[in-house]
Design a protein around this nucleic acid. Structure first.
Lengths: 332, 332
DNA sequence: TTCGTTTGTGCAAACGGTTGTGTAAAATGA
DNA sequence: TCATTTTACACAACCGTTTGCACAAACGAA
């Protein structure tokens, strides 16, 4: 009735559990006849190994922790999907946590990961996170941690992200080439490194094209609603001829306002965004975007993590910066 | 250097590990002085319990498995989010698997869950799944399984879903009341129970309003691309004055075609969908929809699961059908 | 025949924490 | 003061599997 163990098989065959254990994993010490008998009985009894016992014994969990700030529909599904794929391919499983953009929650998630004995950790930092001390336990116990997408640079931690500066630079460059002059910018949380860099790229590209940077054409918003509010206010002051949005969330808000105001894209206002590339296709017209691939970031980070798990000391390139590229659709 | 255990604390204090174990959990058998000492040392040494050992000993994993057909961006983020919340609130963690709409993969996922010793299982069935034998092991070992959203009815399994018939019935009813006559229908995989029921509701509502059911105004598509192709073909035959879409995926495809053909909503064609309620707001005009809440389904399923875990025999209502309701926006 | 090697299996400890039972010493009661 | 209860801790088994070591039996070589 209850779960079949190696001991049950051993008792039934009148042999020692260790023999059964070895027979089941085709250990060379065990004779062919015994192996056959054991495997037959195991099958008959419907034996399957108790991974909890095994992992406990091996001091491994075969678990990879993934800490996310939020389950945003725009970016994370693709990312999780590819991480899951790699994780499974390596014989591990994924256990997902959400920090809800809170530093305290993130620390809690890390603690649970620690308790669970994850063999590796993938972390997308919360908006509030400024320090990484709460991951020190992992490095101390030689459990690899890879930061992805939302990272803090300048440390020797393993990171995978994109060149945020270049991504927005490319976007604005595209707008400038299309001869847009009054370019607005919609950004996310102002304290994120990502935001600062994307804004820096925005400014640099304007400068390169000798376009002025107007701070009244820039706004920040954490949520779609905030974005809508800010952008509506902006439009009351002056209508730009193009707008760059830093993420899908910002894009979603901006698009709604544009429709509310009965503006047409790209005639009244051109739009370009950094995006994972889903939302741009659902909108009309389709939005030109700089590809920021959740799938690629997830894959790169997971691959890096398993490199670090398998060969901790030979991995040299621990800071990976993925390419972004322009996908030209119909909004500029 | 390596991880601190109860034994380390015991050795350091010259007491028995069992005393430490009890002291740490405030067992009444242990004297106040000893408790204080133990807890102090534990803190000083940075002790944290080995959950692998504990769970192994207790024959629990504190893990809930979640098997999904796919990481669709429309529906699952909200669902996962709410499941995660409840799971955590109950002191459990979530481990997510994707079957990629494949029956074999789904069976594999179930196997891994079994090996991992999950304490409960939430399953959203794949497109291909027609039987539930692969979950028998769980019921045999008294591990609760709750099927959610995509379920097979008629068994005594615990299920949480919506009244698919009513959802589409309500949608078509709304269109009919608005005096639309030629109503098209965009559906998903034809072999899903969900599809059949939503189509049945579609037909029933038409009949109630004495509107004819034209099969050439109905199509099925598994992916957005298929939907686009099918709907484009449909439009070449005859333009309906309204279209009902069964899911966000179908809606996304339909909307793209509508824009490609330069039709306007709702003047040329009205649109109504069953949806989780994100996409409808991003589109223009905003799409009227029947609310099919991933969040609610996730919550209901998770709550039910923990009821079954905590009080296996007292739970009576094991088949839950959530209400859907009309959210009237601008597309009809 | 004898010694060394190989083959196949048993034995027991270990992973870290929990828990039922046993038992001194201290506290209580008459 | 002595019997009895309570307090506070120790001891050891246990969860399921792995693994180093011991050790017979069979085998091959000298």
């Amino acid at each position: 009735m209850s779960r079949i163990t190696i001991k049950d098989i051993a008792k039934l065959l009148g042999v020692n559990p260790s023999t059964v254990s070895r027979a089941l994993k085709d250990h060379p010490d065990i004779g062919a006849a015994m192996k056959a008998k054991v495997q037959q009985v195991a099958k008959d009894l419907g034996y399957y190994p108790n991974y909890q016992a095994i992992n406990f014994r091996q001091r491994k969990s075969k678990l990879i922790g993934l800490i996310l700030p939020d389950m945003s529909m725009f970016f994370f599904p693709d990312m999780i999907k590819s991480i899951e794929l790699i994780t499974k391919k390596n014989g591990y499983n994924l256990i997902i946590f959400q920090s809800n953009e809170s530093f305290d929650k993130e620390r809690e998630c890390a603690l649970v990961c620690q308790n669970f004995g994850v063999d590796g950790l993938l972390v997308c930092l919360s908006r509030e996170t400024l320090t990484l001390d709460h991951f020190d336990v992992f490095t101390q116990e030689r459990i690899p941690v890879v930061f992805l997408d939302k990272v803090i640079r300048g440390t020797n931690n393993a990171t995978v992200d994109i060149d945020d500066f270049m991504a927005s630079y490319t976007a604005i460059n595209h707008l400038a080439k299309k001869n847009y002059k009054k370019i607005a910018g919609g950004f996310g949380s102002i304290n994120l490194t990502m935001t600062q860099q994307r804004k820096a790229g925005f400014k640099a590209a304007l400068e390169k094209h000798q376009l002025p940077f107007y701070s009244h054409l820039c706004f920040h918003g954490n949520t779609i609603e905030e974005v809508k509010k800010q952008f509506t206010l902006l439009l009351q002051i002056e209508r730009p001829d193009a707008i760059f949005t830093m993420t899908d969330e910002v894009l979603a808000g901006v698009i709604q306002v544009i429709h509310e105001q009965n503006l047409s894209i790209p005639e009244d206002i051109a739009v370009i965004s950094i995006s994972n590339g889903n939302l741009p296709y659902y909108l009309y017209p389709k939005i030109t975007y700089i590809k920021h691939s959740g799938q690629f970031i997830g894959k790169a980070a997971a691959d890096l993590l398993f490199d670090l798990i398998d060969t901790p000391n030979t991995v040299t390139k621990k800071q990976i910066e993925l390419e972004t590229y322009l996908v030209e659709l119909d909004s500029c």
